[in-house]
Design a protein around this nucleic acid. Structure first.
Lengths: 341, 341
DNA sequence: CTGAAAGCGCTTACAG
DNA sequence: CTGAAAGCGCTTACAG
């Protein structure tokens, strides 16, 4: 099963030097002459040598691997195109820095904490990426206590010094409100995501503030679990009222698409009677009819940046939070001026 | 950064035995008395000992990790809900068997081969999962030459002895044709996926055979790259002909959803003028209108089974291919009897 | 049933 | 600039 993989001992023998010299040469450290180094590198290359990850970790105390634990019920995964695109960006950057990505999918934060503890205890990882942050997040104190390098895929927080990578989704929500108000809408509602998630509350707050800023009072906000069922329920409830909204902003695409169907069933025309703004601008937005106006952002780039911040932290550089480009509104067919009152 | 992780040396000291005895006790091997074993286990548990993955790999020559390399252009990822659901199943089973999942996302097979070579040379993995198999797949000879344990997420093949895990998608395609024919359809077309993919050709062949079996001659089959754009183009072409089909089966959901829009634009009513069958039964199928009849299958279970076959192979058991439950047709609103001729 | 030791493949002080 | 050696934390024959 193992084959005869070349080792530095073999290189040392061929080059006629000690294994220490080989190690120095291979790692670009002082301690060998330029000639020797070149010779060693050539041999290593010829015989296709690659460092044993295990041996490197064991002596160097670095796993050259980071972890991503996705804490979501299995059946909601794959619905949101977010993760695969985030992972694609994250992993691309990690590969370039010769770092592996260990992935685990669990049901909840408790299981996520167990998984990260195990990985850390086994020294399988040098750090972790934390996604889907909750307003009160049990993972953070654990990461801090164990001193595990970690980056938050979310806003910087006051309850931790862990670095964060985030997009200004609050500004994005405001831009959506501004746009709808400019069209003439005054009754704008929001179908938000999981209230436990921090970004949900941030966006709700931004939404409320924007509405107040326009002198439109307290808007209706429905909280959901992001599922299409919840999206339908919330939409149905909003549209059942006498003073129903003329526009609704949704926290993701799936719920916005589901709302399209509810509106149709209820005889509410989109966009003429109801304008709809979706959340993430996945393909879903232009597969449904009418195509959905949505907040669009570069998710792979978000992954790339997240990887960089984590790797810098692992390399011992003082971790710095980073902001990626804000989502911007992409206008499609699901929004227009409200019906005359 | 490292902290003071407990080692077996510490356990040995506390228990007053040798580290060899500790290792035997911890691994459930003979060589220690029941009393000693129990004592050692208790201490290990008390101090929260976990084996160092690096030390285990280095001495045991097993990485306790398998690899999954997704070879797709980044922008097509996340569209298909397949991968996240497959990964969820795969990873769940791996976790139970104490095995990590290393993930990499690359552009094409050449890069995938480079990645697996590197992982293998570094001894980061004990085996790999191969998805998106091509009819002629350059990855297979490399895996065989390097003798890397691998499982194919696809049909068993004559060009390799590697075990495969698959669903009978040919039978599923036939069942869709049977269903449409029973409704009265005679002109049924197919919008297939990437022709390089083996399952695409298998499904096309099954489709053609089923049509011939019903005495319906040679049907039209369009090949695509699975994208919504290609789905639209293919549908537009099919619907532009005088003898346009009364039903189309699609190889995935995205193209079927896109077809809905093309039909609408062209004034072709679904399902009255055109029946549509989608590919994978993702949420997309019931978010669009009309909701799409689709071939449904348990993707997480497919992942679980794939993990099991690979782990058995790594454990040295003779690898055996396995079949999971066939996709079955879920009838929704996008299919009905054809219009009178 | 148990202990002492070699070895996995590297890195890294420590002498020369 | 270079060599010899210890050590990372385990596993596994090999003697007792």
């Amino acid at each position: 099963m193992t084959g005869k993989r070349p080792t530095i001992a073999e290189i040392a023998a061929r080059a006629g030097v000690s294994i220490g010299a080989v190690s120095y040469a291979l790692n670009g450290r002082p301690g060998v002459s330029a000639r020797t180094r070149e010779h060693i590198l050539r041999i290593a290359n010829e015989i296709g040598w690659r460092p044993s990850a295990a041996a490197r970790s064991l002596s160097g105390s670095r796993a050259h691997t980071v972890g991503l634990i996705i804490a979501r019920p299995a059946d909601t995964l794959g619905v949101e195109p977010f993760f695969m695109r985030f992972i694609a960006g994250l992993e691309g950057e990690l590969s370039e820095r010769r770092t592996g990505l260990l992935l685990q999918v669990v049901e909840d934060h408790l299981a996520a904490i167990g998984a990260v503890r195990l990985w850390w205890a086994e020294r399988r990882i040098d750090g972790v990426v934390v996604t889907d942050l909750w307003a009160a997040d049990a993972r953070i104190p654990v990461l801090e206590q164990l001193q595990i390098p970690a980056v938050l895929a979310g806003r910087p927080r006051s309850d931790t010094r862990l670095p964060a990578v985030w997009a200004d989704d609050a500004a994005a929500v405001v831009s959506a409100v501004d746009y709808l108000v400019a069209l003439g809408h005054r009754r704008i509602a929001r179908v938000a995501g999981l209230p436990a998630l921090e970004h949900t509350t941030v966006r709700i707050a931004a939404f409320r503030a924007a509405m107040r800023g326009h002198g439109l009072g307290e808007p209706r906000v429905m909280e959901t679990d992001y599922s299409w069922e919840a999206g339908m329920r919330a939409t149905r409830e909003l549209l059942s009222r006498r003073d129903r909204p003329t526009a609704i902003t949704f926290d993701n695409d799936v719920m916005a698409a589901a709302a399209l169907n509810v509106a149709h069933e209820m005889g509410v025309a989109v966009p003429d009677d109801l304008s709809i703004v979706a959340g993430d601008d996945s393909q879903l937005c232009f597969l449904v009819r009418p195509a959905l106006t949505a907040l669009s952002w570069d998710i792979p780039a978000f992954g790339v940046r997240t990887a960089r911040v984590l790797l810098d932290m692992i390399d011992g550089r003082s971790p710095r939070s980073a902001q990626v480009a804000s989502p911007r509104l992409v206008v499609r067919a699901s929004t227009t001026a409200p019906p005359p009152a």
